[in-house]
Amino acid sequence: MGSNVLHTRRKWRKILFRLGFLLPALLIYTFILLIPIVDSMRLSFYTGSGLIPNTFIGFGNYIKIFTQEVFRERVWGAFTNNIKFFLIVTLLQNILGFFLAMAVTRPIKGAKFMRKISFLPTTLSVLVVGFLFRQILNPIWGILGNFPWLGNEHTALPTLAVAVSWQFIGESILLYTVGIDGIPIELLEAARIDGANWFQEMRHIILPAIMPIVGIVTLLIYVGDFTQFDIVYAMTTTSGNPRFKTDLFGSLFYRTAFSTPARGGWGMGMGAAVSTIMFVVVAFGVGIWFFVFQRKRDA
């Protein structure tokens, strides 16, 4: 019996020690990151004029969004813009990022320095990058001001996508660099002895090795782009000028939830509905990602 008491006490101490060590991280992570996302979904079923919606209306907000043209048009617009934005950024970052990674992994002078420099833009605030590009595109004195990039319906969104890619391509380069560095030299040597040319080397050795990285880069871009807000704020204001052509989910969410009606606010309940729709879109994309890439990995 004595040993039993000792045993339980020890067991309890062990549990308490584990709990004590885990709890701070667990509490903050759960209460600040996870629960609010679920709670925001709950709030999307409420309405009210105050800061926090308090009248339950069931699917009222969603019905409004999907049946009334003014609301549906904005949500649909942000969705399609976001898809286009994501596609452009993904193409730029993956393709250019990969070729630049090829360059900085060559045993040539300056490659190491470029590895370091390529990450510099990523360290800046998106806001700073946005304001900076806006000045470079300034029609009066910007070096690229000879065309109204941000004023033209067709070029505004791609321009934002380029600015974002300019900033984050360093991330792709870094990840691809690691992938390419990880290819055993013997493999390449052997290929060359066999007389493989550049394209064969690329197709049979390098690309297969970096495919998983394409997946990771794309996932990072996906999650980042569907919550992107700062670049729109800095370059084309929260209304996504010109005329919502650069409106993304992030700016739509900000405007609908946190602005006054005169500036496109729809009230917090509607805002919560918008963020729930965003969640569904993000979760859907991540789900597909796991399906495609993780299954491949398991197979």
Binding site: P139, I140, P148, L150, N152
Partner: peptide
């Protein structure tokens, strides 16, 4: 209006 007026924001207008 000036060339590129589509992309001319308020501060650039003032500056001009």
């Amino acid at each position: 209006l000036p060339r590129g007026y589509e992309a001319l924001d308020y501060s650039a207008m003032l500056q001009m």
